[in-house]
């Protein structure tokens, strides 16, 4: 009995050393050799997480290795991005950044430990989710112009909901107020769900949020939409006019999602990831999934690393003054 077990142990040890020996030769092989982790800085189930999972599923197939989603939540997404930015730049850790983490964050979080434009190697833009201006269903104004007038004249008696500091509805909502000159009372919620609930119940008057979150309630008639902040109408909400059509020129926002890697990524690895992302976005089912959510898929010219880098820089420049001014305005 004793002999048998010692023998088993010995042969196991031998097997292990054999595999360890083999490993030395395999290192030079091409990327990827093991599963890739994609850090999503928001809770599972949210719009960014859903987009990441849709894209990662196709990327796993074309890369031949699993792309595993890891949700690291907190501080408006900056916790996850900070952690991912400190990972080794070997392509095995990438992240799904978005408008908040790579645009609004520098203005909102003082001790931010990364620079959206400098700490990353951009891989590519994945999807955009348009912003919709929605109000409680019995809000009297018939169109956007009347709505803006009512919100402005209502002053602080109007209640605007948002889903917490750093959320998309927060920054886009503040941008809306800045562009229209409205001064509503801000009512804060933990996440979009409870905010929508109070909007449906008529406790608050309006909010701005991503189409994924509000489309079913709009089509179900429990809230009403005044405009969608994109250049073109969405196929999901064909009856909702664009902001430009409705007479608000300067308000086009989309909560974009994009894949980044920590700075210092080897060129070939970056190119492989970019190609895999591109393939995913060309794929019919992947595209359809994103479009069905009301999202937009960027064309091949606007999604590469260079275009993404430009987008990040312009977004930081756009959000910083607006959000700083709003923060200074409130005590």
């Amino acid at each position: 009995m004793k002999d048998a077990t010692t023998r088993t142990v010995r042969s196991l040890c031998l097997a292990l050393t054999a595999t360890l020996g083999l490993a030395g030769h395999a290192r030079a092989d091409a990327f990827p050799q093991r599963p890739i982790t994609m850090v999503v800085p928001f809770a599972a189930g949210g719009p960014t997480d859903v987009i990441a999972r849709i894209v990662a599923e196709h990327m796993s197939r074309s890369l031949g290795q699993q792309v595993v989603i890891e949700n690291v939540t907190g501080a408006g997404g900056t916790t996850g991005i900070t952690r991912a930015s400190q990972a080794a730049p070997d392509g095995y850790t990438v992240m799904m950044g978005h408008m908040g983490t790579h645009g609004a964050a520098p203005a909102l979080f003082k001790g931010l430990r990364y620079d959206p434009a400098k700490s990353f190697d951009p891989i590519g833009l994945a999807a955009g989710t348009p912003i919709v201006i929605v109000a409680r269903k019995d809000f009297a104004a018939p169109d956007l112009k009347a709505f803006i007038a009512a919100v402005k004249s209502g002053g602080t008696s109007i209640n605007q909901a948002h889903a917490g500091v750093g959320s998309v509805s927060h920054s886009t909502g503040i941008l809306f107020d800045a562009k229209t000159g409205a001064k509503p009372t801000l009512v804060v919620y933990r996440g979009t769900g409870p905010a929508l609930n109070d909007l449906m119940a008529g406790q608050v008057d309006f909010m701005t949020d991503q189409i994924v979150n509000v489309a079913p309630q709009i089509t179900g008639g429990t809230i009403k939409a005044y405009a969608i902040a994109t250049p073109e109408r969405s196929t999901v909400l064909p009856d909702v006019p664009t902001t430009k059509e409705a007479g608000l020129d300067d308000y086009e926002v989309s909560a974009w999602n994009a894949v980044f890697a920590p700075k210092g990524l080897p060129k070939e690895v970056g190119a492989k990831l970019e190609a895999a992302l591109g393939k995913a976005l060309e794929d019919e089912t992947t595209r359809k999934r994103i479009l069905d959510l009301g999202g937009t898929v960027p064309g091949s010219g606007e999604r590469g690393p260079a275009a993404l880098q430009r987008l990040v820089e312009s977004e930081v420049a756009r959000w910083t003054p607006v959000l700083r001014a709003a923060a200074d305005g409130t005590p």
Partner: peptide
Amino acid sequence: PLLTLGIPPNAVMALMVGAMTIHGIVPGPG
């Protein structure tokens, strides 16, 4: 509330919303 309003009452339900949307079903009044 999840199936009829599209409002997830807790984190697990929020995840169910995500699961539904991935499958192209958007929970809500419809």
